[in-house]
């Protein structure tokens, strides 16, 4: 029941995949604007950047093609790549400070 007590948000951690079409800098800017000078002023946004894995089943090798690449074919052999992960846009956890208590640190 503790989560329902009055509390201030100290930190939120989100996972952002490189293929989520979300830009961390823009997300941080939006976060600052939303948190603003309201009751959660100063709350931190922690972004856990998640690259995807690009694997070529023909070459039997990872084929990393550069940050944020949407390329789905192997540039060496032309086969379709298998993409794993990188699409996350998840709220992982939030850290709360009960009302009236200081934020540690």
């Amino acid at each position: 029941m503790r989560a329902h007590a009055p509390a201030r948000l100290a930190r939120a951690k989100v996972a952002v995949g490189e293929l989520s079409a979300v830009e961390p800098d823009l997300l941080s800017f939006a976060w600052e604007a939303i948190v603003g000078e309201g009751p959660d002023q100063g709350a931190a946004l922690e972004i856990d950047w998640r690259p995807g894995r690009q694997y070529c089943p023909t070459c039997r090798a990872d084929k990393r093609q550069g940050e944020g690449s949407w390329m789905r074919i192997c540039l060496d052999c032309g086969a379709p790549l298998q993409i794993e992960g990188g699409t996350e846009l998840d709220v992982i956890e939030i850290e709360l400070v009960p009302a009236g208590e200081e934020n540690p640190g």
Binding site: L89, D90, V91, I94, L96
Partner: peptide, 11 residues
């Protein structure tokens, strides 16, 4: 003391 809530939910 602060406490952490596990959310693990897609935005």
């Amino acid at each position: 003391m602060s406490f952490t809530v596990d959310v693990r939910r897609r935005a």
